[in-house]
Amino acid sequence: MVSMTARRSRVAGAGWGVRTWLGVALPDRRTIAVVRRHVDVYRELLFINLMLAVAEPTLALLVMGLALGQFVDLGLDAEYIVFVAPGVVAMFAMFSTVGESLWGGYLRLAQQDLFGAMLATPARAEDIAAGEIVWGALRGTISVAAVLMVLAVLTPAWGLIASPLVILIIPVAFLMGLLFAALVIAYIGYARTIHHLMYYFTIVINPIFWFSGAFFPLDQLPGWAQTLGWFNPLTHVVDIFRALSAGDLTWAVAGDVLWLAVVTPPLCWLAIWSLRRRLIR
């Protein structure tokens, strides 16, 4: 048995004989059962959840775009609110995903033993991790759809959306959600207390948030800061969102999409590996 091919190795409650990719088996349809559990919970408080998804970004847009915007001159042609609106979309997408996956994911893992209950079914750790990632991405996508509706309502007044291409923000938001959910799930596999979540937020999420080009253009910063910005996933997301709402597509935008598409799959693998390692000793 041991001499089977190198690709067959010990995995989630199974041993030799289950095919794995670098120690991780492919998730299957149980992933959907995990996601549907989360949808059930989201729907229990659907009205409040959707109200919050709309109210928060509206407030942020009005405060940043109008109040703050009176004092900001970026030297661009457009009003500050037009510049900052796609950044607000990206910001809320990231916070929705990170909030769900970090606090919610850790709660389900460590406090509720929900993953333990799921492991007793035909689900493997891989399915559970994949379900968590997909749900985190969906939370971000829901948030983006809500903010886009707010932007659409405000567009007659401030011209926030200039192109129907804006609708393409939604699939990009899902990709971005996968990336951020994976980034978080990979970490909660190692988090031992609720305090570790706060460290992660401060050390990883906050810098990503502030230095992404959401609130000011990175190209006015020194070269080294721009280089750092290139490694920030949110920078690419903001660039894509800004281009799509302006209808201003360039090859640079294709590069941003490629960046996300290349970085996301290994991160998803890492997240599944990390959660599996935590669940299966």
């Binding site: 199974a14 689900a123 493997r124």
Partner: peptide, 23 residues
């Protein structure tokens, strides 16, 4: 075989765990 057919075995089992991990 538990090493290979984990999903199939788990489909045949009902588990009442020590802790009440209801949702």
């Amino acid at each position: 075989d538990v090493q290979r057919d984990d999903r199939a075995i788990k489909a045949l089992l009902g588990v009442v765990p020590q802790n009440n991990n209801l949702d």
